[in-house]
């Protein structure tokens, strides 16, 4: 019984290993630390966004605004740095609290005004994307010594892989989120809300505070992802991160988190992003496969995982039903 909770996680991990094994068997240089470290550094921003999305989805909500928040924070950072000559750290210090405010606003709309997360965050997506385009329609390049330093910051792995600042930031954030979700009351409250928000309220969970904090965290992580994205591209662009929310949601589901909330693991989402990344790498290595297969394969993976979850939940529902009726 115990393993049922972890089953989707194991399947994702097994698929990841399998894909990696197939790639390594077929292509030279696939099974190398370079590929692994690239997986992390190329997907660092997606990994960071997906951390926040995991929180939101475990709580039973959804956040469609993250892709637009990435763009907004990227544009804001590059404008402040290039046009207004701010120091990058100062710019980040302004952007993150503003992102927190943005998330809080969505949380208030969802909790206080009982509006659906889907539609609220959709409006948030328009708002953030609209603000980004208003700030600048063109891509804004960043030229700052701090960015050069960031680009050089890191260390080389034995096989030639490179662990850069983005990867390190992600790993620190990952550890923080794991501690938050599994070793703090807040984390338990997030799971509680996703399990059954009415019961949670009856049991004394501070629903308002928790809901708002969840969306604040998601927006702040998305803004951080936007900043990390500028490390990657040395620019900010209002159309960056379009559709990123879908990638993040897909990664969360593939990572074994229930879209209905209440169950899932942050580490699963990381595996989900990596699996999607490995599929992409495989297609690039193969060369003859076209890029659209990524979308189709991810769609099929999603379908498989949703069916799996349906089966698992039906099985547990059946066993509890059988138990409860057998006793009556």
């Amino acid at each position: 019984m115990m393993s049922v909770r972890y089953l989707p996680l194991w399947i994702t991990a097994a698929l990841l290993c399998l894909m990696f094994g197939i790639g390594g068997w077929q292509f030279d240089g696939f099974a190398s630390l370079i590929v692994v470290s690239n997986l992390f550094s190329d997907n660092a921003f997606l990994l960071i966004v997906a951390l926040g999305m995991t929180l939101v989805i475990i709580s039973g909500g959804i956040d469609l605004s993250v892709g637009a928040v990435i763009a907004l924070s990227g544009v804001a950072a590059s404008l402040l740095i290039s046009q207004y000559q701010w120091h990058p750290l100062l710019a980040f210090a302004l952007i993150l609290p503003v992102a927190a405010l943005f998330g809080a606003l969505m949380g208030v709309l969802i909790h206080v005004y009982k509006l659906q997360p889907f539609i609220v965050t959709l409006a948030g997506m328009f708002l953030a994307r609209g603000l980004a385009t208003t700030l600048s329609e063109e891509s804004v390049a960043i030229d700052h010594s701090f960015y050069d330093a960031i680009a050089e910051f890191g260390f080389v792995l034995p096989g030639g892989g490179w662990v850069g600042a983005s990867t390190m930031i992600f790993i620190v954030l990952l550890l923080l989120v794991i501690v938050l979700m599994h070793y703090s009351r807040f984390g338990t409250y997030v799971y509680a809300l996703g399990g059954n928000s009415q019961s949670a309220e009856l049991m004394g969970v501070p629903v308002a505070r928790t809901t708002i904090a969840i969306y604040v965290l998601s927006s702040v992580l998305a803004a951080l992802a936007g900043i990390v994205f500028t490390f990657y591209t040395f620019s900010g662009y209002a159309l960056a991160g379009v559709g990123m929310e879908l990638d993040a949601i897909a990664a969360v589901v593939i990572g074994g988190t229930l879209l209905t909330g209440g169950s899932g693991f942050v580490i699963g989402t990381v595996l989900g992003v990596l699996l999607m990344g490995v599929i992409q790498t495989y297609i690039i290595f193969d060369g003859s496969l076209s890029s659209w297969w990524t979308k189709i394969v991810i769609g099929l993976l999603l379908f498989g995982f949703i069916l799996l979850q349906k089966l698992l939940s039906r099985r547990t529902a059946l066993t509890t039903a059988a138990r409860s009726t057998a006793h009556g």
């Binding site: 501690v179 599994h182 799971y191 509680a192 996703g194 009856l202 004394g204 969970v205 169950s263």
Partner: peptide, 26 residues
């Protein structure tokens, strides 16, 4: 009216978990 997705211990102590340095002592 409990939370089926949380562990038995979490259900018993939700909101009153024993903590040290702010971290739950599982």
């Amino acid at each position: 009216n409990l939370l089926p997705n949380l562990s038995v211990a979490q259900n018993l102590f939700l909101g009153h978990e024993p903590r040290r340095f702010g971290l739950i002592q599982h």
